[in-house]
Design a protein around this nucleic acid. Structure first.
Lengths: 203, 203
DNA sequence: GTCGGTTTTGGCAGACTCTGCCACGATAGT
DNA sequence: ACTATCGTGGCAGAGTCTGCCAAAACCGAC
């Protein structure tokens, strides 16, 4: 009554079913599109009731995004570390390189995901929402490292972080669309260095 | 039967009701938050049926974003024009300065809107979605103007456009949060020049 | 002023996501 | 095997949004 023995068989079963649900859902989404696949269909395809589906995933989106491989490195900490050795922009660059390396090892899974995401407006919006949250978590770390005009550090930190995430996102899409042709890291580097060459392109 | 005489009284009435709906909705959203304000309440507050509401606005979001003052300058064309005289980044900067000037004349309305948007996750996501669409419309214009490594023009154009919109958005929020203290254009300029000083901040 | 045709409106029913509630069944530990 | 706990399924409900159809309002013409 005090505490469970250890892991518990139930929890492992729960994890298995969760994974199976995610698989089934992804397959259905690919076949018929995200918006055209009601939760009822996922549930019956997996042999459970819709109500139970919502006990495994709080929302329909979570069945897509919830079980991503643990990209969950502590990015703010990583950024802070890089800031010891480099300026804000380069630190952001290196931080996101780390994420890109992890992603680069799972080509197939990520392009499947991206393809599904692109079938739905709702879904793209949700994805952007996540990016916003990530940005919010990085900005405070960056603020002290930004130099410039008097009270504008906040603004500049926000700009840099959002721009960096944009670089990542754009490189990611570019890479996912050209399956195998290019390297994720190369695309990321190109994206980040776009701003270094700005002077030369300005008239 | 062939063609209506001219403007038609009905259409003017329709426009008036549309405006009134937007007003009522905005007021309710400010009082109780966007997610806590069902369409039924907006409808009854305006003395119409919910069904009719959806004839005026396709979605609940549209009642907020649908009637924005005509920011609808042809931004791609404006960008193309600026590209004749400046590099990609500066052209984007000037293009968005134009938008900022229009916005700057409607301080109150815009900060009300921003406050409402920040009451809802759904809403922020929707707003980002619009930005994506705007970006998509600007990218083709910018691609030919971007120089750099072989086949990377697409990627770099996307990065620049998204970064520019990020600058705008960030400057806008910054400005709206400090009602009156700062100038929209000044904030925008600061945001855009953040990247020009990158070299000096890099270690 | 009245008629005829068009437009606008409102109500109904429905799909879909998501939540609270409760009873039923399976499971785990004793 | 027994019991307490947990997972499950069904039901009802809120909320957004759509299709359908009948009633009402409206405009122009006679």
């Amino acid at each position: 009554m005090d505490e469970s023995p250890a892991i518990g068989i139930r929890e492992r079963a729960r994890g298995a079913l969760r994974g199976e649900l995610a698989d089934v859902a992804l397959r259905l989404f690919e076949e018929r599109g995200y918006d055209q696949t009601p939760v009822d269909d996922i549930a019956s395809a997996a042999g459970i009731s819709p109500r139970t589906f919502y006990r495994y995933f709080g929302t329909k989106e979570e069945v897509l995004f919830g079980d991503l491989p643990p990209t969950s490195v502590d990015l703010p900490a990583l950024l802070e570390d890089h800031l010891l050795r480099a300026g804000p922009w380069e630190a952001l660059h290196q931080t996101l390189r780390h994420v890109a390396e992890n992603i680069g090892t799972q080509r197939g899974r990520w392009s499947r995901l991206l393809r599904v995401v692109n079938t739905s407006d709702t879904l793209r919006a949700g994805h952007l929402e996540q990016q916003m949250n990530l940005a919010q978590s990085l900005i405070p770390t960056l603020v002290p490292a930004v130099e410039g005009p008097a009270g504008w550090s906040d603004l500049r930190a926000r700009v840099l972080v959002h721009a960096a995430l944009t670089c990542f996102d754009t490189a990611f899409s570019h890479w996912a669309e050209r399956d195998g042709d290019i390297e994720m890291l190369e695309a990321l580097d190109i994206a980040f260095t776009t701003f270094s060459t700005l002077d030369s392109v300005q008239a």
